[in-house]
């Protein structure tokens, strides 16, 4: 596992205009994440977790400071370059699994590869492999409306992983799942982290997720309150 920094956040602040004033979501944050980490940004609602993930995911830019992801300064990227960074290097997993309802499980996972202009044969191989990772190969032809929430989140993980991203950003991925499914999902991601050396960065306040993390960055009022490295756990006790 490489120890290079995949994310470098240096003196980043983010302020949003609110009425005549401003709301500070992040305040002078400096933090680094290494390739292959299974880390989480934790904290209560409004602590700035999602804002930080949006900046790392090149969906937003810092008001001040520098955010470098995969060697690219987020502030300097054009819309097209941001999209390319997300397309080639980042995967997203959401609180709600957000599959496109008109497409099948297979097609939902395939979509990311179409954007990469992969051939049909390459896509089929990669999609089936990704679905096998998450145990959903048997449901490839089903529509999202025909699968359960836990299965949907597995498909979402396959969709994020199919393009073999360097970094997966997961925003409250277990919020809508029961305990059994939540543990299964996190375990799946942990396995992928180990096998593919993909960096996972969570935004969460779910104890179940936290129990799997190797590192937790605690945010409070937009500031890093604690940066906690934990002994690696590979399975839930």
């Amino acid at each position: 596992m490489s120890h290079e920094n995949i994310i470098s956040i240096e003196h980043v602040s983010k302020r949003f205009p609110v009425g005549d004033g401003e709301f500070t979501a992040l305040s002078d944050i400096t933090i680094y994440f290494r390739r292959g980490e299974f880390a989480g940004v934790v904290g209560p609602s409004g602590s700035g977790k999602t804002t930080l993930l949006n900046i790392i995911g090149s969906l937003d830019t810092p008001t001040e400071g520098t955010a470098v992801v995969m060697g690219r300064n987020i502030s300097n990227l054009s819309h097209k370059e941001s999209a390319r960074l997300r397309n080639m290097h980042l995967g997203f997993i959401f609180q709600v699994y957000n599959l496109l309802p008109v497409y099948t499980v297979f097609e939902n996972v395939e979509f990311a590869l179409i954007l990469q202009h992969k051939s049909a044969a390459e896509r089929k191989k990669a999609v089936m492999e990704a679905l096998e990772w998450v145990g959903m190969a048997g449901m490839a032809r089903k529509k999202p409306s025909k699968i359960s929430g836990g299965e949907g989140q597995r498909v979402a993980i396959a969709r994020a992983m199919v393009k073999r991203p360097d970094l997966v950003l997961a925003d409250e991925p277990t919020a809508n799942l029961d305990a059994k499914n939540a543990h299964a999902i996190i375990q799946t991601m942990k396995n992928l982290n180990r096998e593919l050396h993909t960096t996972f960065l969570f935004s969460t306040h779910d104890e179940k997720v936290m129990s799997y993390l190797d590192r937790m960055v605690h945010l409070e009022d937009g500031k890093v309150a604690k940066d906690e490295f934990i002994k690696t756990k590979t399975t839930k006790p």
Binding site: G57, N98, L115, R159
Partner: peptide, 16 residues
Amino acid sequence: YQEFGIRLALGESKGH
């Protein structure tokens, strides 16, 4: 809009 958000996350540009 939800679909557009997903597609942006998957790496599609606004222009595309």
